[in-house]
């Protein structure tokens, strides 16, 4: 009898299902924020276009590169642990964390610049959206880095294997969500006018 490999359909996403419920809630919150930004802009087009031009688009480019690259590194970390390569997994996670740290440093410098210029949430409607949206995301980057660091520590201790690595996939899924949100935030806030 000839053996046939039948691909079983996969019904659930990688990682713990609970993180996916959390991810959907986070995406819903950011989605509402994006919609509010776009429709509020309709009432203040000139103001939004004027103050968008004051933002540092070079910094935003660096940060977008950093997050996309960090997501790629996390994909490689998951691939490593699926190959039972714990050391490789740790190295890729550390590389992703470096990219996350780069994002935080660049973004913090942007905030410092705004604070020096006396810009606050109350400065105008554009800055209210810009500061609250990006800071909300900034906090998610920190949360994602904490999760990735915890996963890296456990991986270093040999806590994951090719057959049991749900924790790595759970952390990876959260981090990809953080990247996904920024992929929309970057063009919406920094480029579209």
């Amino acid at each position: 009898m000839q053996a046939q490999a039948v691909a079983e359909p996969i019904r659930y996403p990688p990682g713990d299902l609970a993180i996916w419920v959390f991810i959907l809630a986070e995406l819903a919150a950011f989605g509402a924020f994006f919609g509010a930004y776009a429709f509020t802009r309709m009432q203040h087009v000139e103001l939004f276009n004027h103050f968008q031009a004051t933002l540092d688009r070079d910094a935003a480019l660096i940060n977008t590169f950093a997050l996309i690259t960090s997501s790629y590194f996390v994909v490689r970390a998951v691939a490593s642990i699926r190959d039972n390569n714990s050391q490789g997994c740790v190295r890729w996670l550390m590389a992703a964390l470096v990219m996350g740290a780069l994002f935080l440093i660049v973004k913090a410098q942007e905030y410092a610049h705004h604070i020096d210029e006396g810009i606050r949430l109350s400065t105008n409607t554009f800055y209210m959206f810009y500061l609250s949206l990006t800071f909300f995301h900034f906090m998610h980057v920190i949360m994602g880095m904490v999760i990735l660091a915890a996963v890296a520590v456990k991986a270093k201790r040999g806590g994951y294997s090719a057959t049991e690595h749900t924790g790595v996939e759970t952390g990876a899924s959260y981090w990809h969500m953080v990247d996904l949100v920024w992929l929309i935030l970057f063009p919406l806030v920094y480029v579209m006018k």
């Binding site: 019904r11 659930y12 996403p13 996916w20 996390v74 990809h176 996904l180 992929l183 929309i184 970057f186």
Partner: peptide, 25 residues
């Protein structure tokens, strides 16, 4: 915006691994 949505779809499909999922998720 289209570029952003394409990137988002690629991230979901290939990085999050949703391309091989069937059903609700």
């Amino acid at each position: 915006l289209a570029f952003a949505l394409i990137k988002g779809q690629m991230l979901g499909d290939y990085f999050m691994g949703l391309k091989r999922i069937s059903g609700f998720w």
